[in-house]
Design a protein around this nucleic acid. Structure first.
Lengths: 161, 161
DNA sequence: TATTGTTATACTCTATAACTATA
DNA sequence: TATAGTTATAGAGTATAACAATA
């Protein structure tokens, strides 16, 4: 399966949103992959370039777990796009410093992201474009602002060796 | 992380679609969970109740892998909502027969699904409702019809024991 | 005591491969 | 040979727990 909800008797809202978001995501991944980037690397890079930020701050912005942040920063470092630098304020924290190459790539990846979005939006008749973005914004700020909390499956304690 | 894309510098299409579909999905899961159902169980159940169908046919309809279908049918059987019956046409195939209880639950779960969708759509001003559904339909049938094929990570041959 | 970043790893999800029985 | 369903399991993704350094 692709990533799907599975209902679609007559195309309902779940199907429409799941399908469009899934397809757009595959497009985005494919487009960013051409320059060796992922959506998460892009997200971290653009927010790191605009201001000095620590991993924790960048994780917060991108709504990532701190452990996910670690692997994302690892990837950026490995690609020579960013470096971990000790914070002068807090010796526990690491500032994610974007390299010159990283800054160039950030511009490039932002263009790619904008392009993918633009291609999708521009495929709609003028009148529908604003309507779509407007309605989605209303949902995001209104009825679909926050997830229903899911019955969290707890986790066993780690085996001590 | 919840399931996120991670860009959102200024809310873009990716963020809007990812966020709304994710939140709607959590709502749907939570609502269906109250009667012990999942979206997939619901999908299989409603399509199995309307006509005699095999697992393969139901998998096709729900865009599920046949192995995912196995566990979904297992769950339905365990819950007493459906049974596997040998097909009279093809002795390899199994018809998914919905029990009386299953038929009742299908009606109930459909109400839940419709309710969740309706709550979301009804939260929008009248004018925006149609506009949203219309625009999403255009995307689904047009520019966002089919996923970009992802660089499939192949799979090693299974270890023979 | 609490927090930053790290490592290790448990868990979920889904799909691939191999298998059995049919066709 | 190909297909329906099954089992086992690989692999990706992600979050939890424990830890070290520091606050």
């Amino acid at each position: 399966m692709t990533s799907m909800a599975a209902t679609q008797p007559s195309k309902d809202l779940s199907y429409l949103l799941d399908h469009t978001s899934h397809v757009l995501r595959t497009r985005m991944s494919a487009a960013l992959a051409e320059i060796g980037m992922t959506a998460r690397m892009h997200c971290v890079l653009v927010h790191a370039v605009e201001e000095e930020r620590t991993q924790a701050q960048l994780a917060e912005i991108g709504d990532m777990d701190k452990t996910t942040m670690v692997v994302t920063v690892d990837a950026l470092e490995k690609a020579g796009l960013a470096e971990r630098r000790p914070s002068s304020q807090d010796r526990r924290a690491r500032i994610i410093a974007v390299t010159e190459e990283g800054a160039r790539v950030a511009v490039q990846s932002q263009k790619i992201v904008d392009g993918v979005h633009n291609d999708a939006v521009a495929s709609l008749p003028e009148a529908d474009r604003k309507a779509l973005l407007h309605a989605l914004n209303l949902l995001v700020e209104g009825h679909l602002a926050t997830p229903a909390e899911s019955p969290r499956p707890a986790r066993r304690a780690r085996q001590s060796k």
